[in-house]
């Protein structure tokens, strides 16, 4: 690269300096910039050191502690002095028949969550956007938004109570039609449906708010023009609203897929029981049980590391694909 003019590596954005020339002159300039910044902001550097220490201790050191996935961890020796075993933990994991079930369960559950919880908030937002700003819209929005703030423990308790074979209202209603009581939570096949649809119940209203904001940002002139051109409501939704919220939808989808493998431990663990374990045991719950209940730290760290890496790869792949298809990604 020449010392004087090099093209910008990426398009400059508002918070970034325009491309700087490389080479020694560039390094000198950076140094003086850093010194100037220190003179101006030394108090802020002290201020920022506390949260930075937090990130180092609680986020980055744990990343380093993942070395125990390649070791036979002994609490006495600590993570650094423990004996190396290479890939033995991973071999043990991959050859364990449980592993395939775990992976299948985790993947199917997450895939189902993304599949259901991506389109529904969009539909909800589009519907809310159609009906104008009356009390009805406000009520629906307020009510659908509320479950997001109920804790996981409470939501799972509600599921258990509502679906209870003896006193739950669902079985009471089924009994009216002569259906014998069903223990839904004891059915492995029902687990995913319960998990996913209760999730939609809880988060659709919250997610819709983001799309509503995007819809509000659409230039009204577009709608006016479409109306004058004789577009029906459905056509306006299809050709004005949908393209208008597309960028938001892409970001939400990337984030959704990116979080796929990081699917919540909290809810799956609470919904688990011995009867539905065949489908409800997912990687995060397995990590918890292996590591903290059976105290096999190395194994649990190996499973966790595997999960994090798969998750990161997924995110990068989806981001790449989204960029290719729509020209937009998480990092423009």
């Amino acid at each position: 690269m020449s010392a004087t003019t090099s093209p910008p590596l990426r398009s400059p954005s508002a918070n970034e300096d325009p491309a700087r020339p490389a080479g020694p002159a560039h390094r000198r300039r950076r140094w003086s910039e850093a010194r100037k910044s220190w003179r101006l902001h030394w108090q802020l550097y002290l201020l920022v050191s506390v949260p930075v220490a937090y990130f180092i201790v609680f986020k980055y050191i744990p990343m380093a502690f993942n070395v125990i996935a390649f070791k036979d961890y002994s609490p006495v020796l600590g993570p650094w002095a423990s004996e190396w075993v290479g890939l033995e933990n991973f071999e043990r994991l991959f050859s364990n028949p449980v592993f395939v079930d775990l992976l299948t369960n985790t993947f199917l559950l997450s895939f189902y969550v993304v599949l259901a919880s991506f389109p529904i908030p969009i539909l909800l937002a589009l519907a809310l956007n159609e009906i104008g700003n009356g009390w009805f819209k406000r009520t629906v929005q307020m009510v659908t938004y509320a479950p997001y703030f109920i804790s996981t423990v409470v939501v799972v308790s509600m599921i258990i109570l509502v679906l209870s074979p003896r006193i739950g209202i669902v079985n009471q209603v089924l009994a009216l039609f002569g259906v014998a009581p069903v223990d839904f939570l004891g059915e492995p096949d029902a687990f995913r449906h319960i998990y996913v649809w209760s999730d939609v119940w809880q988060t659709a209203g919250y997610a819709a708010v983001i799309y509503l904001a995007a819809l509000a940002g659409i230039d009204p002139a577009l709608h006016e023009a479409a109306k004058i051109d004789g577009a029906s409501r459905l056509q306006r939704i299809r050709y004005v609203d949908l393209p208008g919220i597309m960028p938001t939808a892409v970001i939400m989808l990337i984030l959704g897929v990116g979080n796929m493998m990081a699917i919540g431990f909290e809810k799956a663990y609470l919904l688990q029981n011995n009867l539905n374990l065949a489908q409800s045991e997912i990687i995060p719950t397995y990590v918890y049980k292996t590591g903290l209940i059976n105290a096999d730290f190395s194994m649990a760290a190996a499973v966790g590391l595997f999960n994090s890496v798969v998750n990161l790869c997924l995110l990068l792949v989806v981001n790449f694909a989204a960029k290719r298809v729509t020209g937009r990604g998480l990092w423009r």
Binding site: F55, V57, F58, K59, Y60, I61, P62, M63, A64, F65, N66, I68, P79, G258, A262, F265, P284, V287, Y288, G291, L292, F297, A300, A301, G304, L305, N307, S308, V309, N311, L312, L315
Partner: peptide
């Protein structure tokens, strides 16, 4: 980056 890649449950537990 900490959003994209987390240390995981067990290593974090060890730090705590």
């Amino acid at each position: 980056f900490t959003m994209l890649f987390s240390g995981g449950l067990i290593p974090t537990y060890m730090v705590v």
